[in-house]
C-alpha cells in the first residue's frame, strides 16, 4: 500500500496475451464509450459544417449551371454538341466550333508546356544543387502566381509580332501537313502577315507558358520521391546521370508526369482572359491552327455574357456547364493518378 503511494497513485498490471490472468475471473468485455467534452463537440460540429459548406458551394456551382442551362438544352438537345453556329435568337446554336477551338488551343499548349515542364522539373530535381535549386523552385512558384491578364498583355503586344515569321516559316515548309497549311477559300496559300495574327497557335503558346508552372511543380514532387536506394544502385552499376533518370526517376515519376500533364490540361481548357485577348473569335471549325481566327468556350462566355435575353444566357450557361464537366472529369482522373502514384513510392531515407 505504501509502495503504491510513492509510485504516484495508481498501479497498473500489464498482462501479456499468453498470460491468462488466473487470479481474476474473466471480466465481461467493457463497453468503451468515448464521451466528448463540450468543446470537442463544438469543434467537431463547426469543422464538420465548414467542410459541408465548402462542398455545398462547390456542388452548387454544378447545380446552378445545370438549372440555368436547362431551357437552352431542351431546345437544342443533342445538336448542341454538333452545331457550329452560335445564334440563340434563331435557335441555331451549338458548341462544336468553340469546343474544337478549346481543344486545339489546349493541345498546342500541351505541346509547348509538357517538354518545358518535364525538362525543368528534371533539371530542378536531378541536376541543380543547393541554393540554385531553392531559387528555381521559388521562381517556378512565382510564375504560377503571375496573373493571366499579364500573360495576355505579353502575348498580345510582344509575342504576336515576333512569332509571325515563325508561323509563316512553318506554313511555307510544312504546309503539306493539313494542320499547318494557311489557305484562303480557294485553297491558295496565304503569306500575308495579317493571315497569321490572332491564331490558335499564338494563344496556345501563351496558355502553354501559363500552365508550365503547375505541371512543373507536380512533376518535380513526383521525381523527388524516387527512392534514393534505387538511384544509388543505378549509379553503383556505372550508370550516367541520364541513364539513372531513365531507369529510376522517370518510371517512378510516371504517375506524376501523367497527372501533372492532365492538371495542366484542365487549366489550359479553362483559361479565359489570355485567349480572349489574343484570339479573333469565329464560329466555325478552323483546322488550320496557324491561321487567324479561333475560339474557346470560355472566350465565348466572356464575349457574350452581356446578352440581354434569358434564353441566350441559358445557352451560355449550357456551354459553361460542358466546360465545367470536361475539366471536372480531367481533374478527377489527374488527381487520382497523382494520388495513386504517391502511395508506396516514397524513399525511406
Amino acid at each position: 500500500m505504501n509502495d503504491d503511494r510513492t509510485a504516484g497513485g495508481t498501479t497498473t498490471t500489464v498482462f501479456f496475451a499468453d498470460q491468462e490472468p488466473q487470479a481474476h475471473p474473466p471480466a465481461e468485455a467493457r463497453e468503451l464509450k468515448p464521451r466528448q467534452s463540450r468543446s470537442d463537440a463544438v469543434f467537431r460540429a463547426v469543422s464538420f459544417s465548414a467542410g459541408g459548406m465548402t462542398v455545398a458551394i462547390m456542388l452548387s456551382v454544378g447545380v446552378f449551371l445545370s438549372l440555368r442551362a436547362g431551357s437552352a438544352m431542351q431546345v437544342a438537345g443533342l445538336d448542341f454538341l454538333f452545331e457550329q453556329k452560335w445564334s440563340p435568337e434563331t435557335g441555331e446554336f451549338g458548341i462544336a466550333a468553340v469546343l474544337f477551338g478549346t481543344v486545339t488551343i489546349a493541345v498546342i499548349a500541351m505541346c509547348v508546356s509538357v517538354p518545358l515542364a518535364l525538362g525543368t522539373s528534371l533539371l530542378i530535381s536531378e541536376v541543380l544543387m543547393g541554393r540554385l535549386k531553392q531559387w528555381s523552385i521559388t521562381l517556378v512558384d512565382l510564375m504560377a502566381a503571375v496573373p493571366s491578364v499579364v500573360f495576355g498583355l505579353w502575348g498580345l503586344f510582344f509575342l504576336q509580332e515576333s512569332i509571325i515569321p515563325v508561323s509563316r516559316w512553318i506554313s511555307t515548309y510544312f504546309g503539306w501537313i493539313p494542320f499547318f497549311a494557311v489557305t484562303d477559300e480557294t485553297g491558295a496559300a496565304m503569306t500575308d502577315a495579317s493571315a497569321f495574327t490572332s491564331s490558335a497557335f499564338i494563344a496556345g503558346i501563351v496558355v502553354g507558358l501559363m500552365v508550365v508552372p503547375t505541371q512543373t511543380s507536380i512533376m518535380r514532387e513526383a521525381f523527388m520521391q524516387a527512392p534514393a536506394g534505387e538511384r544509388e544502385a543505378a549509379y553503383a552499376l556505372g550508370s550516367t546521370r541520364w541513364g539513372m533518370i531513365t531507369a529510376v526517376v522517370l518510371p517512378f515519376g510516371r504517375g506524376g508526369i501523367i497527372g501533372g500533364t492532365m492538371l495542366g490540361l484542365g487549366r489550359a481548357l479553362g483559361e479565359t482572359i489570355a485567349v480572349y485577348m489574343i484570339i479573333s473569335p469565329i464560329f466555325a471549325i478552323n483546322w488550320q491552327v496557324l491561321k487567324t481566327g479561333g475560339n474557346s468556350v470560355s472566350a465565348l462566355i466572356a464575349l457574350r455574357y452581356g446578352e440581354a435575353s434569358e434564353f441566350a444566357l441559358s445557352a451560355l450557361m449550357a456551354a459553361g456547364l460542358v466546360l465545367f464537366l470536361i475539366t471536372l472529369v480531367i481533374n478527377f482522373a489527374a488527381s487520382s493518378i497523382v494520388a495513386r502514384s504517391r502511395s508506396g513510392a516514397e524513399s525511406e531515407v
Binding site: 462542398v55 462547390m58 452548387s60 456551382v61 479553362g270 470560355s298 466572356a302 450557361m317 465545367f324 488527381s335
Partner: peptide, 24 residues
C-alpha cells in the same frame, strides 16, 4: 469526400466561377 471535391475544384475554370455567381 470533401477532399476529393476540393481537389477536383482547384482547377475550376475561373470563368465558370464567375458564371456561377452571375447566375446565382
Amino acid at each position: 469526400f470533401v477532399r476529393t471535391i476540393v481537389d477536383a475544384m482547384t482547377a475550376l475554370p475561373s470563368i465558370v466561377a464567375g458564371l456561377f455567381i452571375y447566375s446565382a
